[in-house]
Each structure stands twice: as structure tokens, then as C-alpha cells.
Amino acid sequence: MNIFRLAGDMTHLMSIVVLLLKMHTIKSCAGISLKTQELYALVFITRYLDIFTDFVSLYNTVMKIFFLGTSISIVWYMRYHKVVKQSYDKDHDTFRHYFLILPCFLLALIINDEFTFREVLWTFSLYLEAVAIIPQLVLLQRTKNIDNLTGNYVFFLGAYRGLYILNWIYRYFTDSHYRRKGITWTSGIVQTLLYADFFYYYIRSWRRNERLNLPA
């Protein structure tokens, strides 16, 4: 474990806590894409299959349980909670996320480290995580009003990915037996690039102390 990875995991945790706080306290999910949340739940379910078979560390297991629990409960809140679901913007959250799932699965069948059930699903979860934010970014483009919590949510998610790239660089240079992880790195870099545009407008609006609005 290194500081970049720990900071990355904590930032990822923060993004989810921000979202749960928004839903639990102000009972609203305005500006949040249910499609993205469903994709994240699928990412965690397909990636953490090994939670019962492989024990890496207590930290690892606790975090997996937290990510699984929170991502599934966020989807539940947005779908079934009588108050929260009313603020779900289903007219604008129309990105057909099924078009993301199938290509990621096919790609995972072709490009993977090992053609086993678990490894293919793990690779699928990597590819899916890379594109999972797209429905959310599309929704933000459509609904101009990005409230603070939503902006912070996307910002923390992007920061977690940036920190993970620093973690890979750090491990590559310090950890002797750390192997090249082409698939993980490529997928992670693509995912982080998707945030680059958002980061630019987020930081610019923060500097100018004005409301964040993304160009059409």
C-alpha cells in the first residue's frame, strides 16, 4: 500500500459518501445519473466476486463490502425510495448504457490476462468502470444546473482515478516484482482522460468563483 493508492481509495470513498449524504439528508438525486450508478454497481459486483474466496487484507475486504453496499443502496434509493426517486431526472438521463455493457464484455472476452471466468469478469469490470461515468457527464451537459454536491461528486471520482495513476507509477518504480499491467493501465488512463474536460471547467469555475456550467 502506498500513499497514492490510500489517498485514491479514500477519495473514491468520499465521492460515494458525498452522494449518499445528498440522498439521505436532502432526499434528492437531482443531477445524478441512475445509469452511471447502475453501471458502478455492476462494476463492483463483477470485480469483487473474489471477496469470499481470496483474502488479500482486512482493509481490502472491508472496502469491497463498503463499495458493494453503498453502490447497491444508491441504486435502490434512486429507484425505489418514494421521495428521492421523484427528483430523478429520467427525461434527461437517457444514455443507453446497455450499449456500453456489451462492447466491454466482448472486449473482455478478447483482451484479457487469462481466459478464466473470474479473470474475464474482472477485466470486464475494468473496461466498464472506464466508461461508467459517461451517462453522468452527458446528463451534466444536458442539465446546465450542476449543484455543488454533484460537481464535488464527479470531481472526487476523477481525483481518485488520477491518484491511482500516480500509484501505478510509484509501484512501477519502487516495487521490484510489480508486473506491467497493460490492461489495467490503459483502461485507467482512458477513464481518467474522460474527466480531463470536466476538471478544466470545474477548476476554472472554482477560480472565477462562479457556478459551474459545462459548454454544450
Binding site: 493508492r5 481509495d9 473514491h12 473474489d50 481470496d54 488479500v56 481490502n60 472496502m63 469491497k64 463499495f67 490476462d113 487469462e114 479473470e119 474482472w122 491511482y164 500509484n167 516484482h177 510489480y178 508486473r179 499491467k181 489495467t184
Partner: peptide, 10 residues
């Protein structure tokens, strides 16, 4: 072995 080293990250 490769796999568990591969999957030590979240």
C-alpha cells in the same frame, strides 16, 4: 502467482 498480485488493488 500472477492473479492475486494482479488483484490486490480495489
Amino acid at each position: 502467482p500472477a492473479t492475486e498480485e494482479n488483484h490486490d488493488e480495489l
